[in-house]
Write a protein that binds this DNA or RNA. Structure first.
Lengths: 243, 243
DNA sequence: TAGTGGTCTAGACCACAAA
DNA sequence: TTGTGGTCTAGACCACTAG
């Protein structure tokens, strides 16, 4: 899901891919180890009989992928960090369930305007007591509760939040429309559900849950803070990556 | 940590970034919504007085970032998926702890050659009963157990696995040297620890844990399968993303 | 000064899709 | 046939680093 499908190579393999693969293979085989100096663009161009721009593209993409590091005036080096870097995609829950061909249902538990506590206000860069919108929605996949969505919304970014019909449109979808996403921060942890969450999800207080917390910004302004609680027995994140 | 530091722009902003930012702003402001056709490379080149190659680079990078989708012979479109796509970096636990400026210690619990069960064999594409190496190591951060690493290794990829000193070098680090990483798949879930895991981590059987399972490939061959169990109260994954 | 990477150009040929 | 994106070239100028 997280890995892109390789496009079917109808034509011949592009030249810049030959360079990329050559360097990747060399790194994979241990011919170059982390910290090693790689051939310069000019040398690779001569070796493969390619223009510098074509070689440059190969090296640039390897840099973006975290495989090598380049220093102007010095050279290209095999990256130090052996990191397993993968794209974790957190999608709108409706799309996620629909993509599995399943039925999605959302049940609104509460929706109200509240006064921010000091902690909540700090998250949004507001003053304590400032108004916030608060919603709690439970999402079902084929009738089974898989996510409890506890959300705070900055009224300045979505003044009509309280008037939405969240049985029809998820908050994520609505908010993305009114306040385009520019930045997000998240954490993922395992913890026990709060009493309300356990009740809404129909699980026991001692059942472990996967909790995703996400703070989302639009043009530098905090739009929404959400806590997504998933029963550990019914939900997992998955992903993958290819070098 | 997951986001790259912006390099200090000593010189003027590159032209291709002007195009990228123009399109990003237009998408963020709602001028173009998902599915919309964007201006062609030729049109953008004329508007910004740039060559097609420069515009092409801007559009190519936006494609890599998942912001737009391009179809040969048709055009460029604003991507449909409002996905919060972020780089989740799973680093070697030693580097991770060292990066926090803390002390890392590894304690080997067991290390042996075993015969693969049918399920284990299937993961590695081997026959049931084939030999596998198995290790269980507990990792401590400043003396606190934060990860139980239960690992299976394909002997064909790392024949000397049993001879390593895992108090000095983590399996991840060793394996990356002998069998360079080419592909990985992982899942993240919340669950209760196995009895042994609870004992080794010094937690109760009912304490929720964040479990990362990862299957790693080198040149198409499954090298190692690992289950990383973290006490939910002592560990969380974090990340972020910028559009 | 010599070598490196960072960027940009003004062309080119191709594969592909729609009219 | 026209317009799109995908790739590639042979130069160019610049910023930076090292000797």
């Amino acid at each position: 899901m997280a890995t892109m499908a390789r496009k079917t190579p109808s034509g011949p393999e592009p030249q810049y891919l030959k360079v990329k693969n050559h360097l990747r293979d060399g790194i994979a085989s241990g011919r170059w180890v982390p910290g090693d100096l790689l051939p310069s663009e000019a040398e690779l161009g001569a070796a493969f009989e390619l223009s510098r721009m074509t070689v440059n593209r190969a090296l640039r993409e390897l840099t973006q992928e975290g495989m090598i590091e380049r220093v102007q005036g010095v050279g290209s080096f095999v990256a130090q960090l052996h990191r397993i870097s993968s794209t974790l995609t957190v999608r709108d829950v409706h799309e996620e369930i629909a993509a599995r061909g399943h039925r999605h249902e959302a049940r609104l538990h509460s929706l109200a305007k509240i006064k921010a506590t000091a902690e909540q206000a700090a998250e949004f860069g507001l003053k304590a007591g400032a108004p916030l919108f608060h919603s709690v929605i439970v999402h079902f996949e084929n009738g089974v509760a898989i996510q409890c969505e506890d959300r705070l919304v900055n009224p300045a970014c979505a003044p009509d939040y309280l008037a939405q019909d969240f049985a029809q449109v998820t908050p994520t979808h609505y908010l993305l429309q009114v306040a385009p996403l520019s930045e997000a921060r998240y954490t993922i942890e395992a913890t026990l559900p709060a009493g309300l969450e356990a009740k809404l999800l129909g699980i026991a207080r001692r059942d472990p849950c996967l909790v995703v917390r996400r703070l989302t910004f639009s043009r530098g302004v905090a739009v929404t803070s959400v806590r997504l609680t998933h029963p550990g027995s019914r939900y997992l994140l998955e992903g993958g990556f290819q070098a």
